[in-house]
């Protein structure tokens, strides 16, 4: 296959989210947006201008945000509950568990500005625990699209899926990677580049960094497979097992703590099904120092060159085993 080339232009995936939400909302009057004062940060201004009555703003009250969302679904509406991911998941986790996941309410939870997106605002605003908190909940798919194309496709899918969804979006600009017209499939990884030396797996804002790392490796004659794995739950077991068997080593990277996120979900499969050398990149279990999102991701070893170096070290571990 031809390797994916990241677009030069960077996109704020929130724009793709609201564009699809408004398009779907025009045809489906049951779609409502629910927010916690976050009209601006969730980019719901356009939705509000078109359908002011369908924007349900509970104010700065995240427990009510999620509970009200569950009640709106019970009343036959299709709520998209939007808030900064750090507050939406952290402040209202028990509401997500009881009112949404356990009750199996048809509510779409849209976590905005996830990961390190709030950079300099500090660890209170970093949402690097949300995969861990949400992926343990039954009934709740957890999805982190890698670009604006996948974001649009995932929103479209979420609206048609009968059940709760946690969609984890960023505000950090990312290049487009997936082809126009891409259709989102829950629990299905996308092959962005094939190779047999190692598999690089990421999602969200990190996927394009993995693609760039693979290009660096290729310059050195190392062919890496790159998977975009937006769905953290249910994890794509088949793709993980194939990666382990075909390439013998797996390197994951995510805009999340190295504890309990995408890498952990993959490791659970690797350990059970096909043990191979593996490394998880992310925020290494600390509260991050001051810095922009891009600075912090680089700081934690997720600059493309650093990812490539880590991959080479991991490949060496693979050969030392044989």
């Amino acid at each position: 296959m031809n390797a994916i080339t990241p677009s030069a232009k960077l996109h704020d995936c929130r724009d793709a989210f609201v564009a699809v939400l408004e398009r779907l909302g025009a045809d489906n009057p049951k779609i409502v947006a629910v927010c916690n004062d976050s009209v601006g940060s969730s980019k719901l201004g356009g939705f509000k201008a078109r359908w002011p009555e369908r924007l349900v703003n509970v104010g700065i009250a995240e427990q009510a945000l999620v509970g009200v969302g569950a009640g709106l679904a019970n009343g036959g509406l299709l709520p998209f509950v939007c808030g900064a991911a750090c507050f939406l998941t952290g402040r209202s986790l028990e509401q997500i568990k009881a009112d949404i996941a356990y009750s199996n309410a048809n509510v779409k939870l849209i976590g905005i500005s996830s990961g390190m997106a709030y950079g300099e605002l500090g660890p209170t605003h970093h949402s690097i625990e949300d995969f861990a908190w949400t992926r343990v909940l039954p009934n709740l798919p957890v999805v982190a699209p890698c670009d604006s194309i996948e974001t649009a496709a995932a929103v479209e899918w979420a609206a048609s899926y009968d059940g709760p969804v946690f969609l984890r979006l960023s505000r950090v600009g990312v290049p487009d990677l997936l082809p126009t017209g891409h259709i989102f499939e829950l629990g299905k990884a996308n092959l962005l580049r094939d190779g047999d030396a190692i598999t690089l797996i990421a999602n969200g804002t990190i996927t394009h960094r993995m693609v760039k790392a693979a290009a660096i490796l290729a310059e050195q004659g190392i062919e890496a497979r790159v998977l975009n794995m937006a769905t953290v739950r249910p994890i794509d077991v088949a793709a993980v097992v194939a990666a382990a068997r075909d390439t013998g080593a797996i390197l994951t990277a995510e805009e999340h703590s190295t504890f309990g996120g995408l890498g952990s979900a993959i490791a659970e499969v690797v350990v059970a099904e096909a043990p191979v050398p593996m490394k998880i990149l992310g925020v290494p279990g600390i509260f991050a120092p001051t810095g922009s999102a891009e600075f912090l991701l680089d700081e934690f070893g997720m600059a493309p060159a650093a990812i490539a170096e880590t991959a080479i070290a991991l490949i060496a571990r693979k050969s030392s085993r044989t």
Partner: peptide, 27 residues
Amino acid sequence: VETNTGPLGHGLPVAVGMAKAAKLTGA
């Protein structure tokens, strides 16, 4: 049963959503 309860303080926010839905749909 309309929604799962057990942890306290969950029913009223959900009920507000139900009542708000009726207002929005005219139910």
